[in-house]
């Protein structure tokens, strides 16, 4: 991520600036209209809606921050938040380590048919999450899933990947499988942008290969890794499809408040408490915004240091 965006000379002529400003405005207007209609307005409406409560008896009334008080005091909601944090804390490092390994292998040209393998590793990302969750559900199924048989053969009797203790690791495996290819493509691109002369100098110095990878290349793609950590962290807070689908393979393990988004869904759709769901969504959004702002601040800091 060694971009040089703000180095272009600034135009001096104000007439030119104005004309360019107008043209720019014309270009961004369609986007801004759609963005306002389908992003900003719904978000503002959700915030507005979260200040009301509709009851079966008594109808709709203004309730101020009562819904927020409910969310902040909800054990299941924060239990879900903690669960996705644990999920992210394990899944993201494991996935990035694997992704970095593969991208380095491809970058060094250690394999034949590198392009083919890159494509193969990328395929899981192209599979819709619903489909991959269904597929993994069958693989993990306690009745006939091959993975439980493998564990049985290894001496773990009555092994069940979808039991309460193991369903989170199972979902981590699915997520790692889904996202490693995508992350390794980004890392591969970053590795490719490492200046050749640096590497060549290291080779001339007789630096061993592992040192080139870990001591020279890894630090140089650090900005890309940090960006991936935050993008994946935001994704982790929104975990929904995998647990929702796996719930169909082993009833009673994944609750309707298992992740914050599942909680929002069941509160809104099944319990019909849309306003409480809106308050939950706002709280979750604040958490995501906090992660994003931290990410931006962190990256700016890094760049300044570099």
């Amino acid at each position: 991520m060694t971009s040089a965006t703000s180095t272009a000379a600034r135009p001096r002529h104000s007439a030119y600036t104005r004309r360019r400003g107008r043209a720019g405005l014309a270009f961004v207007t369609p986007f801004m209209i759609i963005y306002t209609l389908f992003m900003i307005v719904p978000v503002l409406f959700a915030v507005y809606d979260s200040l009301y409560t509709t009851r079966l008896i008594g109808g709709t009334s203004f309730s101020g921050f009562a819904n927020y008080a409910t969310v902040l005091g909800s054990g299941p909601f924060w239990g879900g938040v903690v669960r996705v944090i644990i999920f992210g804390a394990i899944q993201i490092p494991v996935m990035l380590a694997i992704a970095f390994f593969f991208s380095s292998v491809f970058d060094l040209g250690l394999t034949k048919f590198g392009r083919v393998f890159r494509a193969i590793y990328f395929i899981p990302f192209a599979v819709p999450i619903v489909v991959s969750s269904l597929m993994w559900g069958f693989l993990f199924d306690p009745g006939y899933g091959p993975f439980n048989h493998v564990m049985d053969a290894l001496g773990f009797s009555n092994f069940n990947w979808l039991s309460p203790a193991l369903v989170l690791p199972a979902i981590i495996i699915i997520a790692v499988w889904e996202w490693t290819g995508y992350n390794s493509i980004i890392l591969y691109t970053a590795l490719k942008s490492v200046p050749r002369d640096v590497v060549e100098a290291a080779i001339l110095d007789d630096t061993p290969l592992w040192r080139i990878v870990l001591r020279i290349k890894l630090p140089m793609v650090r900005p890309a890794i940090i960006m991936l950590i935050f993008i994946n962290a935001i994704g982790a807070t929104q975990l929904f499809i995998e647990p929702t689908i796996l719930n169909n393979y082993q009833a009673g393990v994944i609750t309707n408040t298992w992740t914050p988004v599942m909680d929002i869904y069941s509160t809104s759709i099944q319990s019909g408490e849309y306003q409480l769901g809106a308050a939950m969504a706002v709280v979750l959004a604040v958490i995501v915004v906090a992660i994003s702002v931290a990410s931006l601040a962190f990256r700016r800091n890094q760049r300044e240091l570099a």
Binding site: P128, I129, V130, A175, E178, W179, Y182, I231, N232, I234, G235, A236, Q238, L239, F240, I241, T244, I245, N247, N248, A251, Y265, I269, Q270
Partner: peptide, 24 residues
């Protein structure tokens, strides 16, 4: 994990609704 897969997400929401209906 949604930000990069809006379509998959939408499909997921639909599938979730359908599957819940079968289940419950």
């Amino acid at each position: 994990m949604s930000p990069n897969k809006p379509l998959a997400w939408l499909a997921g929401a639909i599938a979730a609704v359908t599957l819940t209906a079968c289940g419950t």
